[in-house]
Design a protein around this nucleic acid. Structure first.
Lengths: 124, 124
DNA sequence: TAGGTATTTTAGTTATTGCTTAAATAATGT
DNA sequence: ACATTATTTAAGCAATAACTAAAATACCTA
């Protein structure tokens, strides 16, 4: 037992274990989702995903121009997104075009939909 | 101009500016979304959100027991989620019950749905 | 082959994050 | 008032993240 348990009215051992069991059953999915969300949870990367969703594909230079950022910084963000399976690369000559990966495209689109629809309640 | 622009076939200034303009129009929404996603993009916090979605409400102790983590660490995660407007607190005696905030509940549920349905394609 | 362009990688710096420990608050019961 | 319980806060630390600058790679064209 890592930390001292509370002695409270609600919640008994059986209840705790039930929660743990339900959690365990979805844990792989949650871990994978957390990985994608942490990638999308960066302002610059979310902008990049928005642009890719809108334009289908963009090269590193395009993104750097639009976001007015260092090419190297953009490239490093793209690498993270690619490593996370969120985007894919297609090389044409010396230009690399990035696009949303087919696998994660639905998730990304549903996330971005939330940005427009949900009237983003300001924090605090 | 922050970085040297590329001299490439696709993409001209007009195109870049068009992208920038579209981006600017959704930027407030994207920034707000990024804030929520970065909160949900942490494995522990996503587990907490899953549990809150499942059980409606839980106190700090419950979460610490289920996740087998330090009460203080849990409390600090809860604070971030509350500051971000993702959850809300209700105090009953000396126990504080946390639950998903009404405003962000739809977004959180749609995120969690992705964890079960989307057959989370493993990265790399 | 040489030079230029697009991109990636490496190294270094600074800022942020998540956790631990310990102390501080707050509410409850004696 | 005092001890107990639930939670929060503060301080410190190790790990991670994001950016800059510089060097390395890859591809194209003359």
């Amino acid at each position: 037992m890592i930390s001292s348990s509370c002695i409270r009215v609600f919640a008994d051992t059986a209840y705790i274990e039930q929660c743990q069991q339900r959690l365990a059953s979805v844990e792989p999915g949650l871990a994978a989702l957390a990985a994608v969300l942490s990638l999308a949870g960066n302002r610059v990367r979310l902008q990049m995903l928005f642009l890719l969703a809108q334009e289908q594909q963009l090269c590193v230079c395009d993104l750097a121009d639009v976001l007015q950022m260092n090419v190297s910084a953009i490239s490093q963000h793209l690498r993270k997104l690619k490593d996370g399976g969120v985007i894919q690369a297609r090389k044409v000559g010396q230009t690399v075009f990035y696009s949303l990966s087919a696998a994660q495209q639905p998730l990304i689109h549903s996330l971005l939909a939330a940005a427009s629809t949900s009237h983003a309640t300001s924090a605090r």
